[in-house]
Design a protein around this nucleic acid. Structure first.
Length: 506
RNA sequence: GUCCCCAUCGUCUAGCCAGGUCAGGACAUCGCCCUUUCACGGCGACAACACGGGUUCGAAUCCCGUUGGGGACGCCA
């Protein structure tokens, strides 16, 4: 029996039961390298919805051993800015979604900014006009708006009525002479029912006549989203288009374009939307949905990534705290859910706290250092700062919370809360004993500190809460907080004694 | 309005495609334990198949309808 070459194997057994012998990633790479893209428009900051889409694309690409491409869709001249583009890329980088081709990186199938691809759009639009699959349209916005309104009121779907579809050359020239704006519309004439194969949700069918003739080239010469995206996806050899479910109707238009142009179309996967708590599409109104906000608050990128991955997707396994590599290893489009999900900050906090706890100062101190109050940073060296971080990292969803948790580490408490004040009531003698015993402690280590506390308790005749609470209150100013011995250890002998003395006097 | 999509605990979800499990897990909430306190951790509780019809010995699972929600209907993406 002859040996099968690897590609023959993959091809031959792809559909058979033996395909399970070949990990999906290997099988795919043998057939065709996957290429996916994230194509944001630089009209705002990176939103959690967009970030999740980018992440799914990235995970799919890496899981299948393929490439992740960034393309900037900046054809909306009014709203696109270079600053947004910069921030978008910055957030993507921060999340760890490194692109193989795109802005700042290059690639063979660029340029990767749509405004730099104008010739391509024009050329293909003209091709469609020549083939009668598109036509010049001279309707003004005012006319279109009025007609749309009329149709809506009449209960009809508000779509283009075909006014300019069959204009003669003479009529077109006449309109050009009048200086009317000229756009190019795709003609849906002759289009029948369409079924789109979707990897995430199965086949989706649209009846004929669902969309009217739509603009592909605006009167200002810029292409519209559907035209530019379809063209670029094909030209950039994108194999899988993974995008939000709100694009389903756009996909319908785009497959029409592919067919009219005779271009090969990618496979599609529409992922469910992320909704706000009011169950409408997530937007600025819903609190802080920008990635940058979470970054500024000091959430570790891998925590945000981890949380986002589980919105609309799940693993076969039972662990929910996963690294990027874990996610890449486990990600499958087939496990993307069909129904929209709601962004839940409480769960993000838990995921994030879990990462921080596991990583500790070794992993996060550098990132977290800027979040420490100046007074703390001045007082402690890097090593002590690390110890403080480890004490706090028991339950620290975001580094911005450090600020409120470091009061116990101030040399002398700035204030005393109610519980602390109550605990200090009539404890002058105990505090004096503590101060005297600690002064004699050498070296300043855990065992010594514990011993001093015990001995002081014996001397004063108190134990338990009566012993620990006054000490905690005097040293931290709070009734609650992290492990007391750990606090005493980092603060150091001098500060502890000063605090005890200060509290004793007060 | 028209078209498309969706429907399991408060939230994220497993289970659905190839009907048979006390409908599983996680977050949140509450209780108990651990502990000087808080947290972590452990144990436990609460809590869901939207509704109505079929098909079937048997339906969360398949089919139809209803209701509800969402999305789309731009010279935005």
């Amino acid at each position: 029996m002859r040996e099968w070459a690897p590609w023959e194997r993959a091809g031959r057994w792809r559909r058979g039961p033996l395909s399970s012998f070949f990990p999906e990633a290997i099988e795919r790479s043998l057939l065709k390298k996957t290429r996916v893209r994230f194509a944001p428009s630089p009209t705002g900051y990176l939103h959690v919805g967009g970030a999740r889409t980018a992440l799914f694309n990235f995970l799919f690409a890496k899981h299948t051993g393929g490439e992740f491409i960034i393309r900037i869709e900046d054809t909306d001249r009014e709203r696109s800015t270079g600053e947004f583009e910069e921030k978008l890329l910055e957030d993507l980088s921060w999340l760890g979604l490194k692109w193989d081709e795109g802005p700042g990186k290059g690639g063979d199938l660029g340029p990767y900014r749509q405004t730099e691809r104008m010739d391509i759009y024009k050329e293909h639009a003209l091709r469609l006009v020549a083939g009668k699959r598109a036509f010049p349209c001279f309707c003004t916005n005012e006319e279109l708006d009025a007609k749309r309104e009329e149709m809506k009121n009449a209960g009809a779907p508000p779509q283009y009525d075909g006014t300019c579809r069959h204009l003669t050359d003479v009529e077109r020239e006449e309109r050009r002479d009048r200086g009317l704006p000229e756009s190019i519309r795709f003609s849906v004439e002759g289009e029948g029912d369409r079924t789109i194969a979707d990897m995430a949700r199965g086949d989706v069918s649209f009846p004929a006549g669902m969309v009217g003739d739509f603009v592909i080239l605006r009167s200002n010469g810029l292409p519209t989203y559907n035209f530019a995206a379809a063209l670029d996806d094909s030209l950039m050899k994108i194999t899988h288009v993974i995008r939000g479910a709100e694009h389903l109707a756009n996909t319908l238009r785009q497959v029409m374009i592919y067919d009219a142009l005779g271009m090969q179309q990618p496979q599609f996967a529409h992922i469910p939307l992320i909704l706000g708590e009011d169950r409408t599409k997530l937007s600025k109104r819903h609190g802080a949905p920008n990635i940058m906000d979470y970054r500024k608050k000091g959430y570790p990128a891998e925590a945000v990534v981890n949380y986002l991955a589980f919105l609309g997707w799940s693993t076969k396994g039972d662990s929910e705290i996963l690294s990027m590599d874990d996610l890449i290893g486990e990600f499958e489009l087939e496990r993307v859910s069909d129904s929209p999900s709601i962004f839940d900050e409480a769960k993000l906090n838990w995921v994030s706290a879990s990462h921080v706890r596991a990583g500790g100062s070794e992993r996060y101190l550098d990132e977290a250092t800027p979040f420490f109050p100046g007074a703390i940073r001045e007082r402690y060296g890097a090593e002590s700062l690390g110890k403080i971080f480890d004490i706090l990292s028991d339950n620290l969803p975001s580094f911005s919370m450090i600020e409120h948790e470091t009061d116990p580490f101030m040399p002398v408490p700035l204030s005393f809360d109610d519980d602390a004040t109550a605990a200090l009531e009539g404890c002058g003698e105990l505090l004096k004993i503590f101060a005297r015993s600690f002064a004699q402690l050498e070296p300043w280590d855990v065992e010594g500190i514990k011993q001093v506390i015990k001995d002081s308790g014996k001397e004063a005749g108190v134990k338990g809460k009566g012993l620990y609470m006054p000490l905690r209150a005097a040293v931290t100013g709070r009734g609650h907080g992290p492990d007391l011995t750990a606090i005493l250890l980092v603060k150091g002998k001098d500060d502890v004694i000063s605090a005890l003395e200060a509290a004793g006097i007060a």
